[in-house]
């Protein structure tokens, strides 16, 4: 059976890697990548490691997901698998939060609407985030997929993701014949990842919230790509946490990076975070500030049981690989 896969968000690092790895699969005849911007801009130097940035034989179509054009792409190409990666985690400096929300939520609605009308779509894989669990001192220390968080996400990326998940669940109810997989990823980590979190750790001095030492979890980009590849080529319906085994405390991360932390009382941290954001340094959204206080850990056991496979990198190994690629590391050896 020949298969045609649509990958959204293909102009960013993980999306590009997923598209190129699917393009090498002999069972897949066509990979169509869509995004609002062409894949070459902005060209990240780190993107080229092991050919991650090249889209291979992926056909790129420039589509604004918020417009109904995506329905035409799906109908014209007889798409049977949709991998929806196009969730933006931080507002861009020039366009701001309103556009980010439109892109995330309206974009997903358009895409799901198109999938619902399509007679060919058989499988939908959606990238979500563990941020939907929020970060609160009143919640369990470790989340599994069924935990209802005490303080759900109230704003920003996490709220977008929670709304996207709501629409995806609605779609799964209306189209029970389509296999829907929802993946809640921990923070991506690895040589090619450029995110608020990796930018944070690249700073010379790391502001932290005084009196708090959050637990953090990472998923290595290689493992994230492998999980998405498997989800796109096999049937694994359901919602899954995707994270490297174990946790790192922020203090451990700082020490491993050979950096110094600057503990600030939480109001000062908030103000500094705002200043850094407006100065265009690191983008720290309110939910990331909460993460920096209370941390979050999820249980990835359900994914391992379903796939019979575990991420190769633990949280600590993923972080060390990132540090190594950036030439960072502990002072004492």
């Amino acid at each position: 059976m020949t298969r045609t896969v649509l990958v959204t968000g293909v102009s960013r690092h993980i999306g590009a890697r997923v598209a190129s790895v699917l393009a090498t699969d002999p069972d897949i005849s066509r990979v169509i990548g869509v995004d609002t911007v062409p894949p070459s801009s902005p060209p990240l130097p780190s993107l080229t490691r092991d050919g991650g940035g090249s889209l291979g034989r992926t056909e790129f179509v420039r589509v604004d997901l918020r417009s109904p054009d995506i329905a035409q792409v799906i109908a014209a190409a007889d798409i049977d698998t949709v991998v929806h990666m196009s969730l933006v985690s931080a507002p861009s400096r020039s366009t701001g939060r309103a556009l980010m929300k439109e892109h995330n939520v309206i974009g997903t609605m358009q895409l799901l609407g198109a999938c619902q009308r399509s007679a060919t779509v058989r499988r939908v894989v959606v990238r979500s985030t563990t941020a939907v669990y929020g970060s609160s001192p009143k919640d369990p220390a470790v989340f599994d997929e069924d935990v209802e968080p005490h303080d759900g996400p109230g704003h920003g990326y996490a709220k977008d993701a929670a709304e996207v998940e709501g629409y995806v669940r609605g779609f799964a109810r209306r189209r029970p014949d389509v296999t829907v997989s929802m993946l809640r990823f921990a923070n991506f980590m690895g040589p090619g990842v450029d995110s608020p979190v990796t930018r944070y750790f690249a700073q010379p001095v790391l502001p932290t919230v005084f009196g708090f030492d959050p637990r953090l979890q990472f998923i290595h980009e290689d493992d994230a790509v492998e999980v998405l590849r498997r989800m796109a080529t096999e049937d694994h319906p359901g919602t899954y946490n995707v994270a490297g085994a174990g946790v790192l405390l922020l203090s451990q991360c700082v020490r491993r990076a050979g950096r110094f932390s600057l503990p600030l009382p939480s109001p000062a941290f908030r103000v500094l975070g705002e200043m850094a954001r407006s100065a265009g340094l690191v983008e720290f959204s309110p939910e990331q500030l909460r993460l920096m206080s209370h941390g979050r850990a999820v249980d990835p056991a359900k994914l391992a049981a379903e796939l019979g496979w575990k991420p190769k990198f633990t949280t600590a190994a993923a972080f060390d690989d990132f540090l190594h690629s950036r030439g960072l590391g502990a002072v004492l050896t």
């Binding site: 220390a141 470790v142 030492d213 637990r215 174990g246 946790v247 790192l248 405390l249 203090s251 451990q252 991360c253 700082v254 020490r255 491993r256 941390g295 850990a297 249980d299 502990a330 002072v331 004492l332 050896t333």
Partner: peptide, 17 residues
Amino acid sequence: LRRRLNGEYEVDEFGYD
């Protein structure tokens, strides 16, 4: 001290050191 300064110790998922 080296282990502590380099962050090369293990904590469990609850943060137990």
